[in-house]
Amino acid sequence: MQAFYSDQFVLPLPEGHRFPMAKYRMLRDRIAAELSSIQLTEAPAATEGELALVHTPAYIDSILQGTAEPAVLREIGFPWSPAMAERALRSVGATVAAARVAMTEGLAANLAGGTHHAYAHKGGGFCVFNDLAVAARVLQAEWGRSRHPDGSRRQPLQVAVIDLDVHQGNGTASIFRHDESVFTLSLHGDKNFPFRKEDSDLDIPLPDGCADAEYLSTLEHALQELEGRFTPGMVFFLAGADPHEGDRLGRLKLTADGLEARDRRVLDWCWQRRIPAVITMGGGYGVNLEDTVGVQLNTYRVAASYRSRWAGLLVAA
């Protein structure tokens, strides 16, 4: 399985900043040491044209040129620097690259990404550009330009975003609110950030303290409802580690085993329907950062097992 990384672009954050920048390199190191079937590839930068499929020109320019207003940067939560802009481009580029791979190989990943708080015209919550939305738009555009072997045009590509970060994907929901070709599903903490939610196609708020059994049962019902309402040709799976019981910001009580079961259920749902999928990392703010990295490592261990199923299918074809 191919997984794209951009952890070499480290932001010069002020001391005491709560964003756990180190987790990205920690995860890559663990994957390199323990999951040899995962091919680690440096992420390309997204192009301005790709960003413009989702984001407004003025907002793109303000980030790339370093002219964003202080209030805009406060909402994002990062000070501007050349590294901040480059990291944002690479985070989006990684998801775009993973999506292209997944369309032919069944499954691929971004070891960062899941920047679901970014709107078309602004960022927020440590999210600069919305990698999920940009990658979905790039795939739809490329799919629309291709044709069937008989020369006929393809039907538009239907995309589902399964957002299982503990925080609602407000930016993604806003971007796709009136788009029937993209289905947004979000399971999230009811009383957690963002405190002003947007309307996804399917929102399921969870109470503080929600644990494994309730979460997994709720997820099962959500997947059933998704299937009853929509038929995706691609899934973007935001596999946040922040529902974990040891997360500083999560407020839920899922164990590592519960989160592994979550990942297995989503990827099995995709596999059973032969729907390609892209995994993005999302949030994770463990009191012990090793716990966060361990949860994410489990995600990629499960993903590697499903990628081997796709490999067998492709060989048989």
Results as ranks from 00 to 15, higher is better:
Y5A: 04
G16D: 10
M21H: 10
K23S: 08
L27N: 02
D29G: 05
A33R: 15
S36T: 15
E50I: 08
A52V: 04
A52M: 01
V54P: 02
H55C: 08
P57W: 05
P57V: 10
P57I: 14
A68T: 09
A68Y: 00
V72G: 07
L73Y: 01
R74G: 00
M84A: 06
S91P: 00
S91E: 15
A98C: 02
R100Q: 14
E105W: 00
A109N: 04
A109R: 04
L111I: 10
G113S: 12
A118K: 01
V128F: 00
V134M: 13
V138F: 05
Q140G: 03
G144H: 09
P149T: 13
R154D: 08
P156S: 11
Q158L: 08
A160V: 06
S181C: 04
V182M: 06
H188G: 06
K191L: 04
P194Q: 10
F195N: 01
E198C: 05
A213M: 13
L219E: 14
A222E: 03
A222T: 11
A222M: 06
V235N: 01
D242V: 01
G246M: 03
K253M: 02
L259H: 05
M281K: 06
G284Q: 06
Y285Q: 02
Y285W: 10
D291I: 06
T292Q: 04
T299D: 10
V302S: 05
R307T: 07
W310D: 03
V315T: 14
